[in-house]
Design a binder for these strands. Structure first.
Lengths: 196, 196
DNA sequence: AGTAAAAAATCGAACGTTCGTTTGAATATA
DNA sequence: TATATTCAAACGAACGTTCGATTTTTTACT
C-alpha cells in the first residue's frame, strides 16, 4: 500500500472515532484494527497516538484558511457578514472538533493552540473587523459601533450554532431548512441593531 | 473523618482536576493522593470513578435550578433578559464543565444528558420564551418575532462568552469590567433589533 | 528490460507501565 | 459489641511504545 494511502485511511478512521470518544477514549489497537493494519503503524507514520490526533485536529482547522474568500467578494458589508455566517455554518455544522479542542486532551495543548487554533481565530476576527469597519466608513452601520465587540456578537450567534446542534439535538431539530430560518432570524435582529 | 467530609473533599478536588484534564485525563490514584486517602475510598463512596465524575457534573448543573429567580423579578421583559445574561455570565463564566459535557467522556452519556442536562436546558429555554412572549404581548417587542428563535439568538451571545473566555484568553483579555462592556454592547445591538 | 542492492513499509511479539477494581484485615465510630 | 470507614496489597486488563524479522517498493546499474 502506498504510504499516503494508509496515512489518509488512518486519519479518516481516527477523525470519526476521536470525534465520538475523544483522544483518551480510543485506543491505537481499535484504530489499527479498523484500518486492518498492525498497531505499530501508528507510531511509524505519526510518531505516536498524539501525533495522529494532532493530524486530525490540524485537518479540521485547515478549512479556516479559506475564510478570505468571504472578504474578496464584491459585495456590501452586510452581505459579507451573512456570507460568513452561512459559510461557517455549512462548513462546520456538527463538527465536534470545534468543541474537542476547547476541552483539551493533549499533553501540550498550549503548543497546538498557538500553532493551529489561534492563527485561525485571529484571521477570522481580523477579516470580520475589517468588514464592520467598511460598513461604518460607508455610513451603512452605526458610527458608534465597536468593531471588535460587534464581531464578538456575530461570532456568538454562529458559535451557539455549533453548541446547539451538538447538544440540543433532541430539543431542537436541525436541518438545512432550519439553518436558513435561523440565519434569516439572526440577520434580521442583528441588521436592525447595527444599521445607521 | 466524617463520611460527608471526605465525600465533599473528593468532589472538590475532582472538580478542579477533571476540569483541567477530563475524566480520562485524571487517575483515581492522583485524586486519592490529593485527598490524602487510599484509592479504594473512591469506589467505596462513589461506586467507582465515573460515579465521582457524575457527582461533579451533577453539582455543576444544579445551579440552573435557580434560573426561575430571574422570572420572578417584577421587571420589564428587556430587563429580565439582561438579568439573565448577567446571571449566567457571573455564575458560569469560565466554567469548563459547560463544554466538558458536550464532548462526552461518560460510558453512558445519553443517560446523564437526559437526566441532568436536558431538563436544565429546557427550563432555561422555557423561561426565556415566556419572557419574550411577555414583551411581545405588551407591545414592547416586535410582533413578528419568533420567541424560540429569539431565545436562541440571546443564548448564542451568552454561550459564546463561555467559549471565548476559555479559548481566546490570549486574544481578548476578560475581566469583570470587560464583562460589563460586552453585556452593554450585546444588549445595545440586541435591543434595537427586537423593540417594536 | 532485467536484476541486484537499498530503502521503505509492515508485521507480530513482547515490554514495562498504568489503569480501575476488589479483597480482607485493621481501625474508628456508634 | 456491632457497624462504618479506611487501608495496603494484589489483581487482571488495557494501554502506548519499541524492536527485530519479514515483506514490499524503490533505486541503481548493466
Amino acid at each position: 500500500m502506498d504510504k499516503n494511502d494508509l496515512r489518509n485511511k488512518l486519519i479518516s478512521i481516527a477523525t470519526r472515532l476521536f470525534a465520538e470518544r475523544g483522544l483518551n477514549g480510543v485506543s491505537i489497537r481499535e484504530l489499527s484494527n479498523a484500518a486492518g493494519v498492525s498497531i505499530s503503524m501508528i507510531s511509524y507514520h505519526f510518531g505516536g497516538k498524539e501525533g495522529l490526533y494532532s493530524s486530525v485536529l490540524q485537518e479540521q482547522f485547515s478549512s479556516f484558511e479559506h475564510i478570505e474568500e468571504i472578504n474578496n467578494a464584491d459585495a456590501e458589508a452586510l452581505t459579507k457578514i451573512e456570507a460568513y455566517i452561512r459559510w461557517i455554518i455549512v462548513r462546520h455544522r456538527n463538527n465536534p472538533y470545534l468543541l474537542r479542542f476547547y476541552t483539551s486532551e493533549l499533553t501540550n495543548p498550549t503548543q497546538f493552540f498557538s500553532l493551529i487554533v489561534q492563527p485561525a481565530i485571529e484571521k477570522v476576527i481580523q477579516i470580520l473587523v475589517r468588514i464592520i469597519e467598511e460598513g461604518i466608513s460607508k455610513n451603512k452601520f452605526r458610527k458608534d459601533l465597536n468593531p471588535v465587540d460587534t464581531v464578538l456578537a456575530i461570532a456568538g450567534m454562529v458559535n451557539y450554532y455549533f453548541l446547539s446542534t451538538l447538544a440540543t439535538q433532541e430539543l431542537i431539530s436541525h436541518s438545512p431548512e432550519r439553518d436558513e430560518v435561523l440565519i434569516r432570524h439572526y440577520m434580521d435582529i442583528f441588521t436592525k441593531g447595527i444599521l445607521s
